[in-house]
Design a protein around this nucleic acid. Structure first.
Length: 751
DNA sequence: GAATAAATTGTTTTT
DNA sequence: CAATTTATTC
């Protein structure tokens, strides 16, 4: 194996093949490279690929690793398991879950599905949602499962008060219901695998024999269940190599336990510890900022990243009037980067919460900048897509009542709520799945609904039969055709309907593609594939669009140009973390993750006024901004004014006729630019005399202008002459406005 | 049973 | 505010 491409630490990581290994890999330190070389080196040393297990958190990371190992060792990697925790567990369970009393055709339920299950239970137990919400219940169950606690065990360690009893009841019902539905939630995938191993030692033994070399990526994000799984598999071979960075632990709220990585050396006193501290990604300025921010955390392993790269450009910081102006600044910067030769695919706008994306989206759309939003409403969460999938799921697993109730009246076929309730009640009495109630009809049902239900059952039978006779790609066409799922939108002449048709077609296309890639694939294979996939996995690098995503989703990615928006107290760090030092440290780690995504240039922005739930908020700049030394930043809120001033003087000097002098523009109370409490940015303008008379710019169609409040815009048209000239201007962030040139604080921008 | 109007309610992050 | 859920009318 040629390891000369690696630095000494990476090389040590790739060469330490036996025994426990801890690789502490800082951001951008080439950890994937070290890991892939290590896997390749194992194979090079005669380890058979099927003895290797690589566990990651995302499909994307797994795919990337698989691809890179393949290029190093050729096509021999097919037999190695390189996949996410969840899909590895699903694969193990598909084989042997019958040993613990489930059917192998089990469905994997996502958040929406489990919420429906819980909703039904809360309704049945007549529990007021205000007393115990679905959201809380989901959280409780997930947290318990992450700690491998059953409902009873959870109750035993709870306060055991009345409310805990209720929670316990719901928890028990949930478990029971999931079993009759033949469904597993995400956490079950791990927990049931461990249950299988605990109850059936020979199964565990077979996997221990198989996986003699185990590697775990992002170890700082493992929860107790994942930790247990890994340690159970490797307790004999002791060939466990984990990679991670305690500074990038950002999933604590989801049960990830940072102690798993902090205590690795306690778990394995003989572990080889390797630190990767050279960063290959970011400029020195960016790295310096990241180091300075994270240094404010108490609980962390001591390490510091360094780089050979030059200082690079300073970090641009911008204080905007409100979130629209912030978005306008971002759009303006993106446009200028793009004009300067940078591809849109090299840029990412990051934010703390998905809700923040909307204003940015609107602004980018208005300025004609192509973008794609990742996270948020995912493709597989669209209603029409879920409807198609629900059909597929019922056909693969007729016990899946949740999916069946979803589609029983989609498209509309006159099976209304009351009929469904009748059927559900009957099924429950007879202890059978809802699907069986479609043939075994309750006597109470009247003639009309009876016919509708029978017709529906005939349709489903037909589809089930077709599924056994047709290849999957042909069958999906049959499904769309016979159900009329596409047709229901064809008659509708709205953008929404067209969009839904587009999504259905895209899903059908995806199935066809899946069959192309896996000719032997069954319906079950396809369903499994989509159950564990997210839209993050579909991101193409260097696409011709700007990437919009949360800071969490950005982990593991890198972009030459990164915008961190909403750098405000209460937004980032999130208001919910302010009362807990641990949570604040996690927010800071998130900030560290976000900063270290940037390769060449980082932009940070905050808004003085931000509208949240329709109420204006005035937030102070984020503490994280203050944790970055001033020598690394450049305040663009002032720079923008400088630019205005420069353009103005230039414009005035060049003006062939005497500049029109206009009366002093006086700031009035209530003017958005003079809200009390301003510390940064535009308030400086007063001291810099920007509010006094300025020459009226001569503008023509197509000119780019900068407005003090509205930011950048393009002149659409002008009318009138002299001091009465009015210009219609399309602002990036604020849309079209008609302004009097003699009054508006406008300057022409030089291209 | 379906279409429409009214009312409610929520916002971190996600494999 | 917008999206979802519930009430009302046909």
């Amino acid at each position: 194996m040629n390891l000369t491409m690696l630095n000494p630490q990476q090389r040590l990581a790739a060469e330490t093949l036996e025994g426990p290994v801890l690789i502490l890999a800082g951001a951008g330190s080439g950890k994937t490279r070290a890991l892939t070389y290590r896997a390749a080196n194992l194979i090079d040393h005669g380890v058979k690929p099927w003895h290797i297990l690589c566990l990651t958190f995302t499909n994307k990371a797994a795919g990337e690793m698989k691809r890179r190992i393949a290029t190093l060792v050729g096509e021999e990697t097919e037999d190695a398991w390189i996949s996410t925790f969840h899909s590895s567990c699903a694969r193990i369970l598909r084989r042997d879950i019958e040993k613990i009393g489930y059917s192998r055709s089990f469905a994997i339920y996502d958040d929406d599905d489990t919420a429906s299950v819980l909703k039904g239970i809360l309704r049945q137990l007549k529990i007021d949602e205000k007393y115990l919400s679905i959201k809380e219940m989901k959280g409780r169950i997930s947290a318990a499962k992450n700690k491998l606690l059953t409902a009873d065990e959870w109750f035993a360690q709870s306060e055991r008060d009345y409310r805990s009893q209720i929670i316990h009841d719901v928890f028990c019902q949930y478990e029971q219901r999931m079993k009759t539905l033949n469904a597993l939630d995400f956490d079950d995938l791990l927990m049931k695998t461990l249950e299988l191993f605990a109850d059936h030692p020979p199964v565990l033994e077979s996997y221990r024999d198989r996986f003699q070399y185990v590697m775990v990526d992002e170890y700082q994000d493992t929860n107790y269940a994942q930790y247990s799984l890994v340690n159970l598999l490797t307790s004999q071979s002791r060939n466990l190599c984990v990679v991670g960075d305690d500074d990038q632990s950002i999933y604590g709220w989801r049960g990830a336990d940072i102690r798993n990585i902090l205590d690795f050396e306690k778990d394995y006193p003989d572990a080889t510890v390797i630190k990767l501290e050279q960063n290959y990604r970011s400029t020195a300025n960016i790295l310096d900022a990241a180091n300075q921010v994270i240094a404010h955390n108490e609980e962390r392993k001591d390490k510091s990243l360094w780089t050979e790269k030059a200082a690079g450009e300073p970090i641009s910081v911008f204080c905007a009037e409100d979130e629209r102006a912030e978005a306008g600044w971002i759009a303006s910067k993106i446009r200028h980067l793009n004009l300067g030769g940078a591809a849109l695919g090299e840029m990412a706008v990051l934010y703390r919460g998905n809700a923040q994306s909307r204003v940015i989206e609107e602004t980018l759309m208005r300025s004609g900048i192509p973008y794609r939003v990742f996270g948020g409403m995912k493709f597989y969460e669209r209603r029409e897509v879920r409807d198609v999938i629900a059909y597929m799921r019922v056909i693969a697993n007729p016990s899946d009542d949740i999916s069946l109730t979803r589609i029983i009246n989609v498209p509309k076929r006159a099976i209304g709520d009351s009929t469904v309730q009748e059927l559900t009640r009957h099924a429950q009495e007879q202890q059978m799945p809802l699907f069986s109630a479609l043939t075994d009809l309750p006597d109470t049902l009247s003639v009309r609904p009876r016919k509708c239900v029978t017709d529906f059952f005939a349709l489903m039978s037909e589809l089930m039969l077709a599924q056994t006779t047709q290849p999957l790609d042909q069958w999906i066409d049959t499904l769309i055709e016979k159900t009329g799922l596409r047709k229901q939108y064809e008659t509708e002449d709205t953008d929404e309907a067209r969009n839904r048709i587009e999504n259905i077609d895209e899903l059908v296309g995806a199935v066809h593609e899946f069959v192309q890639k896996n000719p032997e694939a069954t319906l079950g294979d396809y369903l499994e594939n989509i159950a564990l996939v997210t839209d993050l996995d579909s991101r193409e690098e260097n696409g011709g669009y700007v990437t919009l995503m949360t800071m969490h989703s950005a982990k593991g990615l890198e972009f030459p140009y990164v915008f961190m928006s909403g750098m405000e107290e209460g937004v980032f760090p999130s208001g919910r973390s302010s009362n807990s030092p641990e949570r604040l440290e996690e927010e800071r780690r998130l900030c560290y993750v976000a900063i270290t995504r940037a390769m060449k240039k980082l932009f940070m922005s905050h808004a003085r006024r931000r509208t949240i739930y329709n109420t204006p908020n005035y937030n102070a700049p984020s503490r994280f901004l203050e944790e970055i030394p001033g020598r690394l930043t450049k305040d663009e809120s002032i720079a923008q004014l400088d630019e205005m001033e420069r353009s103005r003087t230039r414009g005035a000097a060049r003006a062939s006729r005497p500049a029109t002098v206009r009366p002093a523009a006086v700031m009035r109370p209530g003017d958005p630019l003079s809200i009390p409490g301003v510390q940064k940015g535009f308030v400086r303008s007063e001291s810099r005399g920007l509010n006094v008379k300025t020459p009226m710019p001569t503008l023509r169609e197509g000119d780019r202008v900068m407005h003090r409040k509205f930011g950048e815009g393009i002149v659409l048209s002008t009318r009138g002459t002299g001091s009465d000239t009015m210009a219609r201007i399309r602002f990036i962030a604020y849309g079209d406005k008609e302004l009097a040139l003699s009054l508006a604080p406008l300057v022409k921008l030089e291209e």
